[in-house]
Design a protein around this nucleic acid. Sequence first.
DNA 1: CAATCTTAAAATCTCGAGAAAAAGTCTTGA
DNA 2: TCAAGACTTTTTCTCGAGATTTTAAGATTG
Lengths: 258, 258
Amino acid sequence: MSETALRKDSQDGEEAVEPKTLVEAAYHRLRKDIIEGNLKPGEKLRVEHLKNHYDVGAGTLREALQLLMTDALVVAQGQRGFNVAPISLSDFEDITRTRVLIECEALRQSIARGTDEWEGAVMAAFHRLSRAEERLDWKVGSSREEWEARNKTFHEVLISACPSRWIRHFQQLLYRQSERYRRISMHTSPIPRDVHAEHVKLCEASVARDADRACAVLTEHIIRTLDAIRTLPPSLIEGDPAKLAKVARTRARVLETE
Amino acid sequence: MSETALRKDSQDGEEAVEPKTLVEAAYHRLRKDIIEGNLKPGEKLRVEHLKNHYDVGAGTLREALQLLMTDALVVAQGQRGFNVAPISLSDFEDITRTRVLIECEALRQSIARGTDEWEGAVMAAFHRLSRAEERLDWKVGSSREEWEARNKTFHEVLISACPSRWIRHFQQLLYRQSERYRRISMHTSPIPRDVHAEHVKLCEASVARDADRACAVLTEHIIRTLDAIRTLPPSLIEGDPAKLAKVARTRARVLETE
DNA sequence: CAATCTTAAAATCTCGAGAAAAAGTCTTGA
DNA sequence: TCAAGACTTTTTCTCGAGATTTTAAGATTG
């Protein structure tokens, strides 16, 4: 159904289980399109058009949409259908701050209760991430996707020893949200940070069981993405209602004629 | 749709807006029944039977169920339908600990950024809660419900000055979860704590802008409910699958013949 | 020209029926 | 007595069509 920590099929590190139902499949495809920006923030999601594009019935698509509300990637109001959740700088600031709170707590718990096996998993994930970072070319999509996946895995493994299901659930929610913003910064931001150095320090501090230092590094790490977004032109981030409506209209026509 | 902080219709303190659609109505009724325990934890939710009871179509009920997954009150797996989210002592411990983290952060932010108007609202909510506590009789349902509502409002107002939508969202999620457990302790627990004294201290510290003390009191306050649950016989809390299946069966028949 | 009312179009919401899957039941055999 | 397999029943999942509401456009009036 979803890989959220509160649900049962969540122990996969990299890839989720096979969707068993059309609703799940549509849910995953929609989520991907929203996070990757194929469906723009604030855009109206017309069931009539989308059902053709995703090859499912109207009711099925509606259910997938309802499911996406769980991740706060889709919003709905009364009798006026669904919209992609809008984005804004203030929202991203909120997400970032809250993520610092949640993820640091998760890391603290993980460091406190992690076993040797956990340390090994951290080292392994770090190593795989390092390899991906070595051959990372921002202009090549596949390379970027590989890094993205391994980065996610690394952060997940770091807090995998956190025993709290709710903390992990919130972490996933916020990470997924921030993914949307990171996409924007990756496509446009010209300042390549030394993420590798940050990962090194984070890995070291964690395995050394220095919770305070690890959290400090992690906080820095998370906040830097916020700074990268802050330098972007506001037009990319702000959800101008008029512009969004136009985008939604044109997009709908495109999907219609496909 | 729901009063979650992330959605738009959330500024009502006491009662939500009128449901504009059948899905919303079914969602609210189902949520009420789950929180109040009319639908037992772990119980199977058969669409075929429930749609009669709630007087909606099958698809409509399915959508309401999907929506309830947002609040983690309903779980679903693959092709095997929906279940009420099970409960357990360890889950409640997790909820409580996470709630302490979230709610303290919310209170800190609220105390830091609250205006005089906020102080006034806190005093007002506290006063109304005190009145309800004066005439609180645990054996009278209406009195208990009044207290429950005002208690919720008081805690909501306390953190209403917290500017973070996500923190407020998580707070509502966790509060709603804990409501299920509190119901159990209220119906059976014989140890009436002096909640009023706790509320007094909490209110005083908050208005005095003493964040550290307020959080300490709040932490105590939240954890005490956990202690109350801990004294209960495990049978009330544990979700025995076999027993639950039986309960589900009989309950389904009851609904069917109604 | 702006504002309001009327009319037409599009989109949402809702329902019931049919296909696919799971669970339950019964028979058969060791 | 227990286990395995085939059959039946129940339940879930999916789809398309009709009713209701929102949105857009056009006409009318001050």
